[in-house]
């Protein structure tokens, strides 16, 4: 389970650093890699349990700040400019709304009901929606240039 959550964390970082300048992208990815290693090592050293849930919480609770940081970094850094046709914008908005809703449900399930398997299923659906929407937004859609 720990490996799965760490993969999710790394995938999320790869996603929101897409299109950033090489330095900002490499720095953030390396910093999260280091944090994940330290967290795992610390949990092993202190014998603390629930590492997967703790890492998952840290990833999910930080997503709004990650998105904001990514938007700011695109504005200030030498990143790749990404044009966004109107259909892609709608895809992005829908994906963020549904993805966030599923993430919130997953968080609630982990926190309140202690149902990690169900929570991970819900999280998976949310993640797929979010990734699909972001991919559509980043790559654009055929003929999607709107009025």
């Amino acid at each position: 389970m720990n490996d799965l959550v760490e993969r999710l964390a790394r995938s999320w970082v790869r996603l929101y650093t897409l299109g950033l300048g090489p330095e900002a992208r490499a720095n953030r990815r390396a910093e999260i890699d280091s944090d994940l290693w330290e967290h795992r090592h610390d949990a092993a050293a202190t014998g603390s349990t629930g590492l997967a849930a703790a890492v998952l919480w840290r990833v999910l609770a930080g997503t709004p700040h990650d998105v904001l940081w990514s938007v700011e970094a695109r504005g200030s850094g030498p990143g790749v400019a990404i044009g966004m046709p109107w259909r892609s914008q709608r895809g992005l908005q829908a994906a963020i709304v549904w993805g966030t809703a599923f993430f919130a449900m997953a968080l609630g399930l982990i926190d309140a009901a202690g149902m990690p398997i169900l929570a991970f299923m819900v999280l998976g659906i949310g993640g797929v929606l979010l990734v699909a929407g972001l991919m559509r937004a980043v790559l654009g859609s055929p003929g999607g240039v709107g009025p």
Binding site: I32, D35, W57, R58, V59, A61, H65, D66, V67
Partner: peptide, 14 residues
């Protein structure tokens, strides 16, 4: 109960 979230922490440090 929880450690500071990744996004919150690293955005603040940046």
């Amino acid at each position: 109960r929880q450690l500071t979230a990744h996004g919150t922490l690293y955005k603040a440090l940046d």
